[in-house]
């Protein structure tokens, strides 16, 4: 195997992410010509086009970039912290709980009365779940208790989500809940971006500080502690960072699976396995996967409203199968 070259990997990933942001700006049901679209973004275009570009496509592309990066980064941080390649943002109960918050907003009709109630409820539930998991896992430093606490909280959240569906007042409410759960960036606009953006950025900033601690954890918890890593401090940063970065993503886009699991997996061999290099690479990789999926749903079946979470799962699951198949030889 050739020696990993992280600088080259970062360059290629950044270029791909940038290209997909542009692609996301250019694709949409309004079918604006590419030149005019970009001109409308910068000003000097008919008001209708400027409105589409600035209030719909730009927030959608920015949300795709930030939410994808948040998922990729959360996955890489959790895998590094737990030293388990199967860890993903859903594991600590944040995604399931954020989704439950959103479902309650839909179920109770709050979201119809006040549009931002849904993302606010989702964010609140996501952060609450993180605090609950952190409290349940206790002050000890062992990572296995975190997995168990996360499993307990996400099981509870999915049970309550199922209850809400079960008791939905009418078929229309049930279908609204199901559609929301499938995940989408359709019709998201500036208010959602302003609401989720700061949380996404803060969560990612927190997770990016974990590089050295995660590198040391490669050798296990005892060796990491002896290398000067504060294990309780690292855990608080992981849980809070994932809660912010993933919770805010679920709050505006619904539950989007597989990005946080697959992005770190695909990129780990390319950066030489080192968790500190994988964090930024996986953020870019997550953004690429989500932006590509969001462009794809608009190109493949624009009239059918194909859901983003469905596409990421459809692409992610076979990709994951392939990775498992390939790693059978090395994981013995």
């Amino acid at each position: 195997m050739s020696r990993p070259r992280p600088a080259l990997v970062f360059g290629v990933l950044a270029a791909l992410a940038a290209a997909l942001v542009v692609a996301s700006l250019l694709v949409g049901p309004a079918r604006l010509p590419p030149g005019e679209s970009l001109a409308a973004l910068l000003g000097g275009a008919p008001p209708a086009e400027a409105l589409i570009m600035r209030e719909l496509r730009l927030p959608r592309a920015a949300l795709g970039l930030l939410i994808g990066a948040g998922l990729g980064l959360s996955g890489a941080a959790l895998q590094g912290y737990l030293r388990n390649p199967l860890a993903e943002p859903g594991l600590v109960g944040v995604s399931g709980s954020a989704a439950l918050g959103a479902v309650i907003a839909l179920y109770s009709g709050l979201s119809a009365a006040f549009p931002l109630a849904l993302p606010l409820m989702a964010l609140g539930f996501g952060l609450g779940a993180a605090l609950l998991v952190q409290g349940l896992a206790g002050a000890g430093s062992s990572s296995i208790t975190l997995i168990l606490a996360g499993l307990a909280v996400s099981s509870l959240a999915s049970a309550l989500t199922a209850l809400a569906l079960n008791l939905a007042p009418n078929p229309f409410a049930a279908s609204e809940i199901v559609h929301w759960l499938l995940g989408s960036l359709v019709d998201r606009s500036l208010p959602q971006l302003w609401l989720a953006g700061p949380f996404l950025v803060a969560g990612m900033a927190l997770l990016l500080t974990l590089g050295r601690s995660l590198d040391a954890l490669t050798l296990g918890e005892d060796a990491a502690a002896s290398l000067g890593v504060s294990l309780p401090g690292a855990r608080i940063r992981v849980v809070l960072g994932v809660a912010l970065a993933t919770g805010a993503g679920v709050a505006v886009a619904g539950a989007i699976g597989f990005v946080g699991l697959v992005a770190p997996h695909l990129l780990r061999p390319l950066v030489g396995g080192r968790p500190s290099a994988l964090l930024p690479a996986s953020a870019l990789g997550g953004a690429i996967l989500l932006l590509a999926a969001d462009v794809a749903v608009r190109l493949i079946a624009p009239e059918r409203d194909l859901k983003l979470g469905v596409v990421t799962a459809l692409v992610g699951a076979p990709l994951f199968l392939h990775l498992v198949w390939r790693s059978r030889r090395t994981l013995t």
Binding site: D222, A223, S226, G228, P269, R274
Partner: peptide, 22 residues
């Protein structure tokens, strides 16, 4: 923690290497 790490190196019995670092 860091001052401690500069004074003492500890080699655990468990030989854990989680990722394929060179």
């Amino acid at each position: 923690a860091r001052a401690r790490a500069l004074r003492v190196a500890y080699l655990p019995q468990e030989r854990e290497i989680a990722w394929a670092l060179d």
